[in-house]
């Protein structure tokens, strides 16, 4: 490609695609930022209630999920390294591992939520209506924030599945890997949000 980059037929600018992805990540950060703002205000107003309510959550499951996500974040970063080093087979395996980790995270989440639902603790339930205000707010935020986060996990998985097939078809290769790079960036974003979500939801004293 020439330095001037004036192309009629095929215009390709990986830097632009990456900048675009980063800007999108900014919007996602602020989307969750709005929720963290709400969280911080209600936690400040009801510190004791938030502590009591957080005891309902199992720290063990939270830790497992944290490690699962951190690990998946590393594997997808390694997948990018692999593709840059032109090791297609390893890249495919690493993406597959990442997807497996994402699945484990979601299954864990499913049991965690299911456990609450069994006890009648879900938005709009009769039990929720009886709770104290602080407890109610905590669980409202818990379901909304982790729910939205899980939704992002699913979106990230879809992106990575597409990336997987693109690597397989060689349309993502050691020379043009920006799709995988952007998919990986999105996946790290999901991890990044969880890094803050975990201590704020599970570890309240």
């Amino acid at each position: 490609m020439s330095e001037k980059g004036i192309h009629i037929e095929e215009h390709r600018d990986d830097e632009a695609s990456k900048l675009g992805m980063w800007l999108f990540i900014f919007t996602e950060l602020l989307l969750f930022g709005g929720l963290f703002l709400v969280y911080s205000i209600y936690r400040w107003q009801y510190p004791v209630n938030f502590h009591e309510a957080s005891l309902e959550l199992s720290v063990t499951i939270g830790v497992i999920n944290t490690i699962v996500l951190l690990f998946s974040s590393m594997t997808i970063a390694m997948a990018l390294t692999a593709i840059q080093k032109n090791n297609k087979k390893l890249a495919l395996r690493l993406i597959a591992v990442t997807l497996l980790m994402a699945l484990i995270f979601l299954i864990n989440k499913y049991f965690e939520w299911g456990h609450k639902f069994e006890h009648g603790l879900y938005p709009g339930s009769d039990l929720m209506a009886l709770l104290e205000r602080g407890h109610l707010l905590y669980f409202s935020l818990y379901f909304f924030m982790t729910g939205l986060h899980a939704l992002h996990i699913i979106v990230g998985m879809i992106l990575l599945i597409i990336a997987y097939f693109k690597v397989k078809k060689d349309s993502v290769n050691s020379d043009r890997f920006v799709f995988l790079e952007n998919g990986a960036l999105y996946w790290h974003l999901v991890d990044l949000i969880w890094i803050f979500l975990f201590p704020l939801m599970y570890l309240i004293t």
Partner: peptide, 11 residues
């Protein structure tokens, strides 16, 4: 365009 010059992070 410098898409060949990107830094590769080691495993």
């Amino acid at each position: 365009m410098d898409h060949n010059k990107t830094h590769i992070t080691e495993y």
